[in-house]
Each structure stands twice: as C-alpha cells, then as structure tokens.
C-alpha cells in the first residue's frame, strides 16, 4: 500500500492538529494583543461635532496607542459625548489638565484622537473623569495657561495649516475692524452717524450759520455807525460840533470817556474771561473761540470807533494804533482735517 494510504490516519491527524493549534495560537495572541484580560480605565470627553470620530478609533499619545473610543453619543446640548478607555499601562499619563485633540488629516482619511497630558505631575485622574477637548473653552484655557504639554505637530502639512490658520484669522479680524472704522469715519464725516464726531460736525455747521448771521448784523451796525460818524449832518458830526453834545460829553474832563473806558475795560475783562472759558472749552469746541474772536474783533472795532471819537484830531489825540492780538486758538477753519 502506498505510504499515504497506510498512514492515512496519522497524516490526517497531523493535518487537523496543526490547523487547530494555529487557530488556538491566533486566538490567544489576539486575546493578549487586544487586551481581553487587561483592565481598561474609562473616561469621557466632549466635542462640538462627531465628524471624524468613530467607535474603536485609537487614541494616541506620542505615536503610541494608549486607548480607544468606546461610545459616541449626542447629548441634549447638541454636543457629542464620547466614552473612551485607556489601557492600564498608560493610566499614569492621564493627569490633571490633560486634553484630547481631534486631528483631521487634510486628505479626509486617517487622522485621529491625540492625547496631550497635563503638565501637572500629580496622581492620575480617577476613572470616569472628564477630559476636555482641545477646542472647548476649557481646553483652550488650559492651553493658554500653559498647563498642557502640547508638542508641535510632526506632520508638516498639518503644522503649516495650523500656523496659517490663526494668522488668517487675525488678518480677517483686522480687516473687519478696519472696515468698521472706515464705515464709522465715513458716517461721521457725512454727519449722518450718531457718534460724537458726527454731532460735533453737525453742531459746528449750525454754529457757523449762526455766527455768520451775527457777523452780518454786526457789520450792518458797524456800517451804520461809520455812516453816522461820517455824515456831516449826522448825529456823530453833530455831536462833534464844538457846540454839539459831543463836545459837551468829551469836554467833561474825560469823565464820560473814563466811564466808557472803564466799561470797555470791564467788557474786555469779561470777554477775556469768556475767552479763557472758551479756551477751556476750546479743547472740544474750537469754533466757539472763533466766534468769540470775531465778536472781539467787532468790539475792538467798536472800541476803535469810540477811541477815534475821543482822539479825534478835531477834538484831540489820534487813534492809537491797535495791537493785533492773536487768537487764543486756531480758527476752526484753519486746520486741515
């Protein structure tokens, strides 16, 4: 009989046994590798979205898998809760202030959960503790406070994207601010806006209108005065006649003049006070100073007229040259915008 037939039973026995042994070995190795008999510690975390998360997804720390996601669920606040377990060999890495980061690969595949331990060297967290995700408020706070040990990204693409992203964000924010600012200024300039600059300009233009009116009135008064002063039969000339009332007024040993002078001096002082007051106001309302300047100008002219009357060569003296007093502030129309 052929060898094969003679030892059929032995051959078949070996055939079957080797296969069964292999199967048993594989099962044992899987058991060890997948930790059927090792203790896992369970924790929870929360993410804003479940995208990129899957049950069984590994949790890695420095390239080593330290655990995996057990469960993913949506809570009442529309956030995604995950339950995950950590192998007992790595439990001492789960310290206070640790965070969990969801890394997504730019290609859409791969990516995973990366664990960043807290810098705190205390005992590991108790089981079922909550570990915040990197993107949550808590997580960001921990990172900014420097309580989490976050290494730079090893993957070049991710790193670049990571760095560009905040820059872009900042630029965006800046552009938005500038845009808002320009809008405000434009609005302010056109007087349409509600902010102080706008109201300032609105008021200024109102005031200019009023001042113009006052000036016109003053001008007409001055004209009439001048006309009155120059017409030979006018009251001024009449007054200046040696027998006129003027003579009488002026020849009372300067009493009236002194009186008027005092009055004018008082008026001047008052105006000066007003001017000082306006100087104070000037920091915010330079146009009032301008108006007051014009007023002073007019009063100076008035003063000149009276002085001229006093110092009329027909009577005596002359007009003292007026000393131009500089304005206490730049006219509001002087400065450029």
């Amino acid at each position: 009989m052929k060898f094969k037939i003679r030892f059929a039973e032995q051959i078949v026995g070996v055939f079957v046994l080797v296969a069964v042994a292999f199967l048993a070995l594989v099962l044992i190795l899987i058991g060890i590798n997948q930790r059927w008999f090792a203790k896992d510690y369970h924790f929870t975390s929360r993410f804003p979205s479940g995208d990129g998360l899957s049950v069984g997804m590994p949790i890695k720390f420095k390239g080593f898998q330290i655990g995996a996601v057990d469960r993913i669920s949506l809570d009442e606040n529309d956030l995604v809760d995950i339950d995950f377990s950590v192998y007992d060999t790595y439990i001492d890495k789960i310290r206070r202030n640790s965070v969990l980061e969801l890394v997504s690969s730019p290609l859409g595949i791969g990516g995973g959960l990366v664990f960043h331990p807290g810098k705190d060297l205390g005992p590991p967290l108790a089981e079922s503790s909550f570990i915040p995700s990197l993107n949550s408020a808590e997580g960001r706070r921990l990172v900014q406070a420097g309580l989490v040990d976050i290494p730079p990204n090893s993957d070049a693409v991710t790193r670049i994207v990571g760095e560009v992203d905040p820059i872009l964000k900042n630029v965006n924010a800046t552009l938005v601010s500038v845009h808002q600012l320009v809008d405000t200024l434009n609005g302010g300039l056109s007087g349409a806006a509600d902010n102080p600059t706008g109201s300032l300009i609105r008021n200024a233009s109102d005031m200019t209108a009023q001042i113009n009116k006052v000036l016109v009135d003053l001008q007409s008064i001055t004209d009439r005065l001048a006309a009155a002063a120059n017409s030979p039969n006018g009251p001024v000339q009449g007054m200046l006649q040696p027998q006129g009332s003027m003579e009488k007024i002026l020849n009372d040993n300067d009493a009236l003049y002194d009186h008027i002078d005092d009055t004018l001096a008082n008026l001047d002082a008052t105006i000066k006070q007003l001017s000082d007051f306006v100087t104070y106001l000037n920091s915010s309302q330079p146009e009032i100073t301008g108006i007051l300047d014009e007023g002073r100008e007019t009063l100076s002219q008035g003063k000149e007229v009276l002085e001229g009357i006093r110092n009329n060569p027909l009577i005596r003296g002359g007009i003292q040259p007026r000393i131009e007093q500089p304005g206490t502030s730049a006219g509001y129309r002087d400065g450029g915008f």
Binding site: K4, I5, A8, E9, I11, V12, F15, V16
Partner: peptide
C-alpha cells in the same frame, strides 16, 4: 471519513 479528509484536505494543501 479519514480517507475523505486525506483526499479532499491533505491533497489540496
């Protein structure tokens, strides 16, 4: 049965 496993299994190995 033994022969069957021999012919079907062992010989196809």
């Amino acid at each position: 049965l033994t022969m069957q496993i021999l012919f079907t299994g062992v010989e196809a190995l």
